[in-house]
Amino acid sequence: MKARNSWLLALAVAFILASVLVGSRREGAEFAGTDGQAMAAVATLNPDYQPWFDFIWEPPPEVASGLFALQAALGAGVLGYYLGFKRGQRQGQRKRPDAGD
């Protein structure tokens, strides 16, 4: 399992790195979000359309990056806690082979 997962993770990282390298060689590559590009496509399809509702609250750009990091940190924290907990649990069981649980 361990060896296989290491390979899979290495593959995923290689994929991301290759994407940045290949992507940034393109003309005009700014790594713009596709969500924004899709909304721009709306404007070309229907130039008269006006969004009829606006964000109630929009974080200032600097704060927004922090909140994005917070979302990732919360997710990674909980996930990491679970993975570490399960590994530790297994190791505890191995150390006490006579413990009947």
């Binding site: 991301i16 994407s19 992507g23 940034s24 393109r26 713009a32 596709t34 979302q71 997710g75 990674a76």
Partner: peptide, 15 residues
């Protein structure tokens, strides 16, 4: 939560 927070780059130069 974590995976949808990460904006990943793609070979197309968008993310």
């Amino acid at each position: 939560f974590v995976i949808s927070a990460l904006k990943l780059p793609s070979i197309t130069g968008s993310c």
